[in-house]
Design a protein around this nucleic acid. Structure first.
Length: 431
RNA sequence: GGGGAGGUACCAGAGCGGUCAAAUGGGACGGACUGUAAAUCCGUUGCUUCGGCUACGUAGGUUCGAAUCCUACCCUCCCCA
């Protein structure tokens, strides 16, 4: 046999700041043979968001190290609800939503790992497959029997909830269900490691405990810290909500912008966590960044890498082009773009359609912005923003609240670029 | 089951018969500055055809006039059992 990993996985996680905790013996196991590990994904939405990228990155690194990654989608666990890190009982999803979420996430997950041909090819499993025919009685007899209530109650996720608002039997049971997943994968797929966020430690150890008692086997756990920003706030959300991987929900432009806007204090932490570049490359970037933060070298490198990974080279180019015009450009730059480039640059922005005849007749500015479109939520707001110098048409400040807009302002006779504040762009497109 | 406190704008929280579209703080948004940053400063933060209109848990009532007083209902929290 003579297995030798491509690199020391735990060591890799350590310098990246991705290692929170691991069980004793994990390192030896990984050095000994090609090992399988899994991470569970909770189907709470039909798309992953960048908060899910940490576990995805763990699996990508794991595979690169020469080990075999498993993705578990929670068709069954999604029906129960994980109490970890939640302060209140969760709403259950109906079957249809759940299935839609699973399908959506599966499609995204498959693009990050190698599922073909290699010896350590990734696999995807759904715990619903082994839970659907598992009766309640069988479960409490075969699984519940091995774990004591006091063991389960000692978990932080349970303890916190019992002290606060209470916990339903359903959510209390969650750790057993997740624990059984681990047992199942251990016995059927020889999967010896479960990875996850540090909030999953309790659930994972229930699994290893179950494996020890029920299968007399030894299994391991690796957890990653939960990513937070320097100011303590949760990472992965912008003002307008989650940053999704689905381009329908978060455009590649917004996605690119999100990474570009990472604060200086966080840039170093995040590039280590999210970038797949080598240690020496990353360290060189960081060194370069010091002292010339204004260049935002780290943010750019990270934004480029992530946009290409999640979307494509093409999307990155479009996003950069749009960025160039929106932030550096003047009205002339904008007008000098040819139709093709403009189509691309505008494709990611929120677009409003308006019949051409209407615009040719002339539309009052307030009417246009709050009635015909939803750039502003009310005329009062539109009025205030315009008066406060916070609105531009085609990159030129517009300050006349009684103004009338007509077709002469159109770019290439089809677009008008409306800008609210510094970063909010909308396209008015005539038809 | 008994006793107590309370429900006010995005959040926290003052107001307790008129001068209240509602103090203050935070958040958010916009402007200046800048690096599409941080910090700072300034402005905005219910709708409006600018006459008004709708809002302080819900429904009624008292009053010239109610977020403020009364009645009922709904909800939340705390203490005791």
């Amino acid at each position: 046999m003579g297995f030798k990993p491509n690199f020391d996985f735990l060591e890799e996680l350590k310098w990246r700041g991705l290692l929170h905790d691991s069980m004793p013996g994990t390192e030896e196991q990984l050095a000994k043979e090609m090992t399988s590990a899994y991470i569970g994904f909770d189907p709470t939405a039909d798309s992953l968001h960048i908060g899910n990228m940490v576990p995805v990155t763990l699996l990508m690194l794991f595979q690169r190290a020469g080990h075999k990654p498993y993705i578990l989608v929670g068709g069954a666990t999604g029906m129960v609800g994980d109490p970890s890190g939640k302060s209140a009982e969760r709403n259950l999803l109906d079957d249809e939503t759940l299935q839609k979420n699973i399908d959506g996430q599966k499609a995204q997950l498959t693009q990050f790992l190698d599922f073909e041909s290699v010896a350590n090819k990734a696999e995807i499993v759904n715990n619903h497959d082994w839970f659907k025919n598992f009766s309640f009685l069988e479960f409490i007899r075969d699984v519940g029997k091995h774990i004591t209530v006091s063991y389960m109650m000692a978990k932080d996720s349970v303890k916190n909830r019992m002290e606060a608002s209470g916990i339903s039997f359903t959510e209390f049971t969650y750790q057993l269900v997740q624990g059984y997943d681990f047992y199942h994968l251990y016995t059927h797929n020889n999967c010896k490691i479960q990875m996850g966020g540090s909030d999953q430690w309790g659930n994972i150890t229930t699994g290893t405990e179950l494996i020890r008692r029920k299968a007399q086997g030894q299994a391991f756990a690796i957890t990653a810290p939960l990513v937070t920003k320097a100011d303590g706030s949760k990472f992965g959300k912008s003002e307008s909500g989650n940053i999704w991987l689905d381009p329908e929900k978060t455009s590649p432009y917004s996605f690119y912008q999100f990474w570009l806007n990472v604060g200086d204090e966080d840039a170093e932490t995040f590039i280590k966590i999210y970038s797949l570049k080598s240690r020496s490359e990353i360290e060189a970037l960081i060194k370069n960044h010091k002292g010339q933060e204004y260049q935002r070298g780290l943010q750019k490198a990270l934004a480029e890498e992530m946009t290409v990974r999640i979307h494509s080279e093409h999307d990155l180019m479009q996003a950069q082009k749009a960025t160039q015009v929106f932030f550096k450009g003047t009205e002339e730059d904008l007008r000098s773009l040819d139709v093709l480039n403009m189509d691309g640059a505008f494709a990611d922005l929120d677009t409003f359609e308006l019949p051409k005849i209407e615009l040719e007749k002339g539309v009052g500015i307030l009417d246009l912005l709050s009635t015909k479109t939803t750039v502003f939520s009310s005329k009062g707001e539109a009025k205030k923003m315009i008066a406060a110098n916070g609105f531009s048409i085609n990159k030129t400040k517009y300050t006349d609240i009684d103004g009338v807009i007509n077709a002469s302002q159109l770019l290439h006779n089809k677009y008008m670029l409306l800008q609210k504040g510094k970063k909010n762009y909308y396209v008015l497109s005539v038809s």
